[in-house]
């Protein structure tokens, strides 16, 4: 049991990343729904949403091109980019926003005191503040995921790359005494994507599907010139 708990196809810790093929995304928002269900994300109601307090760890951005009737719609799923050089981390006074060994941009709810500096610093608008204690009308609380904690008022929350699934896959792999294989970990959005537009995996493994896609000549980073070094690669549309 002294061996590394992060055994992957490569040696050393994994570096989790994602590739998003924009040619495949149909904008169906199944990922958004799956994310809400998996991560116990509360809905805030119409009034609060109008005040900009809606919480969606992943969202589909729409871009319209051309004049009616010749309109093209482009979709782009946007979630936390888990930047290697994350602007949200150095501004946190309590180290609630910090980097893990596996490159995840972690949000530790226990430490968060709700300054909202991180949301202010984030270039991608993917951090969400709990302005109120979330409410579920009974019996809807019975569908909450027991593997994910509930965030209370004055805590910032964001995409975790479904770290509970990463942990579960690692525990299962260790139980079966095998290395973690490519595709063992699937966040809720990746699992639910009907078009396979989202691919998740270990960027340290050069043979993983996500590594191969990230090397594609179509690959771009969202606001990459800011130097945040995002771990999500968007494959630009060809069509």
């Amino acid at each position: 049991m002294q061996e590394s708990s992060t055994a992957t196809t490569t040696n050393g810790p994994a570096k989790w990343g994602m590739a998003v093929d924009l040619d495949r995304c149909t904008g169906c928002e199944a990922c958004v729904t799956a994310c809400h269900a998996e991560n116990n994300i509360p809905t805030v109601g119409a009034n609060q949403a109008a005040a900009g307090r809606a919480m969606h760890w992943i969202r589909i951005e729409r871009y319209f091109e051309g004049e009616f009737p010749d309109v093209h719609v482009k979709f782009r799923p946007v979630l936390c980019q888990h930047c290697d050089n994350a602007p949200c981390e150095p501004v946190c006074p309590t180290y609630a926003s910090s980097h893990t060994d596996e490159g995840l941009n972690a949000q530790v709810y226990n430490r968060c005191i709700g300054t909202r500096y991180c949301a202010n610093a984030c270039n991608y608008n993917v951090r969400f503040f709990n302005w109120f204690n979330p409410i579920w009308e009974k019996p809807l609380h019975l569908q909450l995921n027991p593997d994910v904690s509930l965030r209370e008022v004055s805590v910032m929350e964001k995409c975790t790359f479904c770290v509970q699934r990463i942990k579960e896959a690692k525990i299962d792999a260790k139980r079966d005494a095998r290395p973690l294989a490519d595709g063992d970990v699937k966040p809720a959005c990746v699992q639910s994507c009907t078009a396979n537009a989202l691919v998740f995996g270990d960027l340290n493994d050069p043979e993983s599907a996500v590594s191969r896609l990230s090397r594609s000549p179509r690959g771009t980073k969202l606001l990459g010139d800011l130097g945040t070094q995002p771990k999500i690669t968007y494959l630009q549309r060809e069509g």
Binding site: M1, Q2, S5, T100, D101, V108, N110, S149, T160, K167
Partner: peptide, 12 residues
């Protein structure tokens, strides 16, 4: 025991 002490090991 050399287990991970990363925050996310227990808190998420």
């Amino acid at each position: 025991r050399g287990a991970s002490n990363d925050c996310l090991t227990c808190h998420n």
